[in-house]
């Protein structure tokens, strides 16, 4: 396993959210985290990226224990999160947004080279590169957030609700982009409410409910409507 969470308890302040969550992601696979609202999906991603601390249990990444690492160290290791709700830097241009993503890379030259490559796979963003990101449409902003994550040359890219609040056309655009990344064997963890979206993208999945993993879906194509109803409605 490239990334492994073992028996994780976590929460905010004194409020517990996750109870004994275990999860593993192998190199090159795309894993979905499914579940109803308040299941703890976003919290789990934040635990993986270090934005929420672990109460109990531990996290392994490439054989190293990363439990005590803060978000900066994890980004340095290549564990990159694309936060929920299209968190772009609104007054910075698209290009500047992407440069922030590339800060992990050692040199200016490395950042420029990476920027060229990211523009190659995100052609629409190249056209918009001098625009403030806050002036783009929702779908374009989500693309900026994903591209910014890719600028960091991620070992694992973690996406929190990439289709949230997007128009159907924009959802297709984001979906197509992620599918392309999957074909390039980028390791991804996707949190999604949109089951269809995950269905077509992920190879495996974990279903979370009330902070616990209630079922594991070993192959997404075997996920039946009944199992899904069971997972969401209990």
């Amino acid at each position: 396993m490239l990334l492994e969470a073992r028996a994780i308890d976590a929460g905010y302040g004194k409020v517990p959210v996750l109870h004994g969550v275990a999860l593993g992601v192998a190199a090159g696979e795309c894993v979905a985290i499914l579940g109803p609202n308040n299941a703890g999906k976003s919290t789990l991603l934040k635990v993986l990226s270090g934005l929420v601390g672990v109460w109990r249990g531990n996290l392994q990444f490439e054989g190293a224990d990363i439990t005590p690492d803060g978000p900066s160290e994890r980004v340095r290791r290549g564990l990159i999160q694309v936060p929920e709700g299209r968190h772009v830097f609104p007054d910075l241009t698209v290009a500047e947004n992407l440069i922030v993503g590339g800060l992990r890379l050692g040199s200016h030259r490395a950042r420029r080279a990476r920027l060229e490559r990211v523009y190659d796979s995100f052609k629409p963003l190249y056209e918009l590169r001098h625009r403030p990101a806050g002036m783009l449409s929702g779908g374009e902003q989500q693309l900026v957030a994903i591209a910014r994550g890719l600028m960091a040359e991620p070992r694992v890219l973690m996406l929190d609700e990439p289709s949230l609040g997007l128009s159907p056309v924009a959802v297709d655009l984001v979906f197509g982009t992620l599918l392309g990344l999957k074909q390039e064997s980028l390791t991804m963890i996707v949190v999604e409410q949109n089951v269809q979206f995950c269905f077509d993208l992920a190879s495996r999945g974990y279903v979370l409910r009330q902070g616990r993993v209630v079922s594991q879906v070993e192959a997404m194509e075997h996920l039946t409507a009944d199992a899904l109803r069971q997972a969401y409605l209990g």
Binding site: L51, I80, Q81, L92
Partner: peptide, 19 residues
Amino acid sequence: YRYRAVRENETAAQAMGVS
């Protein structure tokens, strides 16, 4: 860039490894 990232959106900045 780190400064501007924090100014613009602290959560996103943190997610990108900016402290």
